[in-house]
Design a protein around this nucleic acid. Structure first.
Length: 393
DNA sequence: GATCCACGGGAATACACGGATG
DNA sequence: CATCCGTGTATTCCCGTGGATC
């Protein structure tokens, strides 16, 4: 826990002390600098990355594991730490006599949710290797590629690029990633991170090295939750038994466990409780569909899609009885500056992506034609709502 | 001028159902 | 009985346009 949190915690110790002291600490989309309970996985990754310490590139690799197993947490943490350490040593080397040696590689972390095309990939890599800012528009994909090729040609600069969230709906597939990075064989190694088991993937696209990140064991997940709760919630806000129930319910998925914790704390806050009661906990878990789509995915959607989703959550049953009705209602909301046709298209796209689910209305057999469907969120609605509102207030 | 992207809109297609047809 | 057909919706697909950026 950092000092800021400690102080804040002391500050609000009155009778009406809020339960949630630090949203980031209990947010499922925020990763801690040092993920808890993933030591063995870290070791495995460091073994794999060993060549880097001799200024060589490792083989390409595929890191995989189920939802909420800490893949992103582990890899962001690893990438930033390594880059920090190695770039330090890089600057040291430059001032010594060993200036001829190849420089140590740069570490780059790219979220495929945000860089979901070739162009986006080139841009993300360039942007993080170069200090100067890279133009995002008006320059073609070919131009960016040759710029990257220039940068990486010879042995001037190597890079290890981690691409997270490969093979999700709407992100690059492993195959296209392999093809895109195939242009830079000699000077760029990549680590793709995804959920699919290597056996389920096209063999020709899958890199030689596979590293599995298994789901959290029950006790490890309890530790994660306990740590997060003590950083982000008021003291005594949640009992140990409740944490254990949450962990059992989440079944190894840290994302869902945190979403449940967040939701429960939010409900307790709204109800004016000074700790999380049973009803809050139940309600919190109910507000997280299982399986649920990662909030990270929802919160990296383009602004207008998020707006549409946010408005969708405001609709009552009548207004959301069909996709068309929902689109009408959302398009006429004061904050929304989109046509009903566009909102409708967005809603269908979101359902197609699995972020919502269309369920056929079973009643209304009296009406002719194909029956309409209702949209049900497949993500943690309370958490999304709160984080969205915090971000957009 | 080149490039990319988001919007809008409309055409094409899919589906559900009742009724007609063979 | 199985299949086809017409009608009314729902859903998907696709492309032109215009804004923004370089």
């Amino acid at each position: 826990m950092d000092l800021k949190t400690r102080i804040r915690r002391r500050q609000r110790n009155g009778t009406d002390a809020p339960i949630i002291l630090e949203y980031d600490a209990i947010s499922p989309v925020v990763h801690m600098e040092e993920p808890t309970g993933r030591g063995p996985v870290m070791e495995r990754l460091l073994d794999y990355l060993d060549p880097v310490f001799d200024r060589d590139l490792p083989m390409n690799a595929y890191v995989w594991g189920p939802a909420g197993s800490g893949k992103s947490a582990v890899l962001t943490s690893l990438t930033t730490s390594l880059d920090r350490l190695i770039s330090q040593s890089r600057s040291v080397i430059h001032t010594t006599t060993r200036a001829q040696t190849a420089p140590a590689p740069t570490f780059v972390y790219v979220d495929a949710r945000q860089a979901n095309t070739d162009l986006g990939l080139y841009h993300a890599v360039l942007d993080s290797i170069l200090d100067e800012s890279v133009p995002k528009k008006g320059v073609g994909s070919d131009a960016l590629r040759s710029r990257l090729a220039d940068l990486l040609s010879g042995s001037r600069q190597n890079a290890v690029v981690t691409v997270d969230h490969v093979g999700e709906p709407g992100t690059l597939s492993l195959a296209s990633l392999a093809e895109t990075f195939g242009h830079f064989e000699d000077s760029l190694a990549w680590i793709a991170v995804g959920r699919d088991a290597p056996g389920d993937l096209p063999a020709d696209a899958c890199p030689p090295e596979h590293i599995e990140i298994p789901a959290y064991e029950r006790h490890a997940l309890v530790d994660v939750l306990t740590g997060r709760a003590s950083d982000g919630l008021a003291r005594q806000a949640i009992e140990h038994g409740q944490v254990r129930r949450l962990a059992d319910w989440a079944d190894g998925d840290a994302h869902d466990a945190l979403a449940g914790l967040f939701s429960a704390a939010h409900l307790a806050t709204v109800a004016g409780h000074d700790h999380i009661r049973e009803r809050d906990l139940e309600g919190g878990m109910d507000a997280v569909p299982r399986p649920s789509v990662s909030l990270g995915r929802v919160l990296t959607l383009p602004a207008n899609r998020q707006l549409v989703l946010r408005q969708l959550l405001e609709l009552d049953e009548t207004a959301a009885a069909s996709v068309s009705d929902a689109a009408e209602a959302i398009a006429s909301a004061p904050d929304v500056d989109l046509s009903a046709a566009t909102v409708k298209r967005f809603l269908y796209e979101l359902a197609e992506a699995g972020i919502t689910e269309r369920v056929r209305a079973d009643q209304a057999a009296d009406r002719a034609g194909r029956p309409p469907s209702r949209l049900e969120p497949r993500f943690a609605t309370l958490v999304f709502r709160r984080l969205y509102d915090l971000q957009n207030e």
